[in-house]
Nucleic acid binder design. Structure first.
Lengths: 219, 219
DNA sequence: GGTGGGGTCAACCGAATGGTTGACCCGGAG
DNA sequence: CTCCGGGTCAACCATTCGGTTGACCCCACC
């Protein structure tokens, strides 16, 4: 049986070391290379391709402090010729992350607190071209299918972002050159789509669903 | 020179494996035991004590999915007789977290994305009874000293966090078993300290200054 | 034994927000 | 062409929020 060669992508050296130790403890798995962000991952893939080295699975973290984030890295990788399956291994099971990753072409989604054997199985499944979802993630996806995603208009998202900066309705109105009445109209629509009934809850909901970046979340 | 014996406390098997691999790669450091949460950590310390085993440093994650969280675990450990120094190793550099950890008796605060050598040095420093702060954390503290610290009370921070989840004054009042009037009083104090004049701006300001984590940023 | 800070609460008022209805314009889909 | 959705605006009203004043309790500190 061929050995499965894995590319680790995570910005934490600690986690990379952990994955390396954990995976190499299993028979038939080796770590081809490591990368700290999406850019480095793509370069590593290119480098290994030139060397004629095989990469059977990319193990990717979604949250990365600097550099290309996991979702865009995933989609970039999937746009290569004969791309390796990308298995997401992340800390959070929050909503939009998962959808974004799946849309980007991820073939699996595991959580970091999973026991080693589960991660092992997921890597095997991914290498075999199958899909591997953590139970919690699977449940979340099912939930999301039943609950249709609210699609906000660009204008609504714009107002939502201004909202999150702490501006009042009047201030928002001045900022985008519309009347306060219009701002309120938009907000009502936004509340309806997000299933909330006040501005702070809207910010919380929108941030949670990654519709906007949280207040103060710069960079 | 005596070998430094470390107790790892982290709910992620991956991270524990990583720390183990990373630390044991250095001379003079060994991993005495591992624990997945605060409860287990205390039990491990007790068990090792009975066995006559030494623990020179506790390496503790703050965020733990289930079981006792890192801050209370830290204070519990520091209440033991001849307690080992507790070195916090976590993902976030939020103010509230850091302050709480320091108050609980942590002797260091490192971030998980730190390079191995930095973590190594921090463990050595902690074992020697010194304080070790990640550069980013140290910078944050310095910044806090120069910048007239808004110095919110724990209660105010608590309300601020609830505020950020989108709760109304009444809902917050119910949640913490106080009257709506009291909530308003606290909010007025918070607005004053943050230099804002409404709740959304307070959330934005508090998030920006890392007094709280942004809405939807659960971990 | 004050003094002060933190936490609690009530009553009050003006301002802002939430929510509704109805209306107009415009551009693209059918 | 008609219909519909997005965007704009006005008027209205109930509710909530923002802010003040004054008060009480408790506890740590001097």
């Amino acid at each position: 049986m061929k050995e499965i060669r894995v590319l680790l992508v995570d910005d934490h050296p600690v986690v990379r070391a952990g994955l390396r130790a954990m995976l190499t403890a299993f028979e038939g798995i080796s770590v081809a290379a490591e990368a700290a962000d999406g850019d480095a991952a793509l370069k590593e893939l290119e480098r290994l391709r030139i060397l004629g080295d095989r990469v059977d699975v990319v193990l990717m973290d979604l949250q990365m402090g600097a550099g290309m984030d996991g979702v865009t890295a995933t989609s970039r990788i999937r746009q290569l010729e004969g791309p390796p399956p990308v298995l997401i291994l992340t800390t959070y099971d929050t909503d939009a992350d998962i959808l974004a990753a799946v849309e980007a072409g991820a073939s699996g989604y595991m959580l970091k607190d999973a026991p080693p054997e589960q991660i092992h199985q997921a890597v095997l499944a991914a290498a075999a071209g199958q899909t591997a979802l953590a139970p919690r993630v699977a449940a979340l996806l099912m939930d999301r299918i039943s609950n249709p995603a609210p699609s906000l208009t660009p204008r609504e998202i714009q107002l939502l972002e201004l909202l999150a900066t702490g501006l009042s309705n009047r201030a928002i109105a001045k900022r985008v050159f519309i009347s306060e009445a219009t701002v309120k109209t938009h907000l009502v629509h936004i509340y309806g789509k997000l299933g909330v009934d006040n501005r702070t809850a809207a910010i919380a909901a929108a941030t949670q669903r990654r519709i906007i970046r949280g207040p103060g979340t710069q960079g």
